[in-house]
Design a protein around this nucleic acid. Structure first.
Lengths: 214, 214
DNA sequence: ATGTCAATAAGTGTTTTTACTTATTATGGA
DNA sequence: TCCATAATAAGTAAAAACACTTATTGACAT
C-alpha cells in the first residue's frame, strides 16, 4: 500500500484527486496541504511514501518545499504536478529532488502510473516532457562530431572507461587483474592514438563516445 | 506515402519485415540491401524517405553506412534496428545521424511507429533506451542537488573550467596570471569542497554543470 | 573592531601521470 | 610460415597531481 500526501492550493483539485485516488486499491491519500509550509510540516508528521506536489503554491513554492522534504526525508518520493512542460521547471524541481513530473493536462491514469513508478524509486516523466529530454539527447549527441572509438582495442576501451570514471592506474590494474605497468601502458597508448595529453581530455572523449556519463 | 529501404544481412529478417510493412497502407518498401555498401549505393539511387538499418552488417557496418548516407542526403532518415540496448551503440549511431533506435525484440508496431515518427524529422527511441536516457537525465540533474557550483567561489569556478579543458596547473597560472602554487591551491580547494579526488571527476562535474562541453 | 571568507602564495612530502624504450607471448591473417 | 597486432610487463625519469600546513592581504558584514 502506497500512502500519499496531496499538495495543491486549489481545494477542488485536491478533492478531485482524492476521489480518483480512492478508486485505486493500492493507493491511499493520508493527508492534504494547501500551501508549501503545510506540506513540509505534514510530510514530517505523516511520512507518506509519495507527495503529489503542485509547483505553484503560496507561502513556499513546490520547488522549495520539495527541497526541504527531500533534505529531511530522502525516502519520501515527490511527483511534481505542473501545468507547464517548461524545461526550467522540470530541471529545477528534479534538481530539488523530485522523481516524477506529470502535466496537469495528463489523464489521471498517467498520474497513477507515475505514483507507482516513483514509489519504487524510479523516475517518471510525462511523455511530452520525456520527449524533449530525448530530443535534447539526440540533438546533443548528433551534433558532436567525432572520429573514432574504433581505432581503440577492446582493452584500451575498457581502460579508458575506468580512467574517465576517476580510477587511477593502480585501481584499474586491480579491477582488470593486470599489472599496474600494463594499465599505464594502455593509458599511454590511448593518449598516443587519440593525440591527447591529459586525463581530462580522455574523460571528455569517453563521455562524447558514450563510454560513461558526465 | 513513406518509402522505405531495408538493410539487414539476414534474408529472413528482410522478408519478414517486408511482409509486415506491406500491411501498412502508408508505408512501402522500395528496396533491400544485404550489406553496408549496398545500402549506401541503393540509398543514392532510390532516395527513400526512411532506411531501416541493421547495425551489424558485413562490408560496412550500420554506423558507417549511416554516416555516409546522411552526409550525402541529409533528408533521408535512418532508423537503427539493433539487438542491443547498449549505450555505446545508441550514442554512436545517433551521432552518425540516425534519428531512430529500435530494439529487435520490440513489437513490429513499435517499428512502424518509429518509421512514422522519424519520417517527420522527430527522433524515436525504443522505450527501454528512452527510459535509460531519461533516467540518466534525472540522475544527472538530481545529483547536482547536493554539491553544486554555488558552493564554489568565482575563481575556483574559473580554475575548474580550465582544468576540465585539460589544462595543467602551470598553464592555468599563466592564463590567469597567478602563481602555480595558487592554481594548485584552487584545485585542492575544489577537490575538498566537492569531495572529489581526481581530475577525471572534476572534469565530469564541470560538464554536468555546463562549465564546459564534453 | 572583529571575525569570516576569498584570493594569493610558499613549503614539504608522497603518489601519479606522462613519456619514453624494450621485450615476451598469443592470435589471427596473408 | 611469417608478419602484424593486442595484451602483457619492466625500467627510467621528469613533470604533475595530490595532500597537507601556514601566512598575508583585502573585502565585507555583524
Amino acid at each position: 500500500m502506497t500512502t500519499i500526501l496531496l499538495a495543491d492550493d486549489h481545494r477542488v483539485v485536491r478533492e478531485g484527486l482524492r476521489t480518483l485516488l480512492a478508486q485505486e486499491a493500492d493507493l491511499t491519500v493520508v493527508g492534504e496541504a494547501a500551501d508549501g509550509r503545510e506540506v513540509v510540516a505534514l510530510a514530517r508528521t505523516l511520512r507518506p511514501d509519495v507527495v503529489i506536489m503542485d509547483i505553484a503554491m503560496p507561502e513556499l513554492n513546490g520547488i522549495e518545499a520539495t527541497r526541504l522534504i527531500v533534505a529531511e526525508s530522502p525516502s519520501i518520493r515527490i511527483v511534481a504536478l505542473s501545468m507547464y512542460a517548461d524545461r526550467r521547471f522540470v530541471t529545477q524541481i528534479l534538481r530539488a529532488g523530485a522523481l516524477g513530473y506529470v502535466l496537469k493536462e495528463a489523464a489521471f491514469e498517467e498520474l497513477a502510473r507515475a505514483i507507482r513508478t516513483v514509489a519504487t524509486g524510479k523516475p517518471y516523466l510525462s511523455p511530452t516532457v520525456a520527449g524533449f529530454v530525448i530530443e535534447e539527447f539526440v540533438r546533443q549527441v548528433s551534433t558532436t562530431a567525432s572520429k573514432s572509438l574504433e581505432i581503440l582495442t577492446s582493452r584500451e576501451t575498457e581502460v579508458l572507461k575506468l580512467l574517465a570514471e576517476g580510477k587511477r592506474a593502480k585501481e584499474i590494474a586491480l579491477e582488470l587483474k593486470i599489472g599496474v605497468k600494463t594499465a599505464e601502458a594502455h593509458r599511454q597508448n590511448l593518449m598516443n592514438k587519440l593525440e591527447m595529453h591529459s586525463i581530462a581530455e580522455l574523460t571528455r572523449f569517453a563521455i562524447r563516445e558514450g563510454l560513461t556519463t558526465a
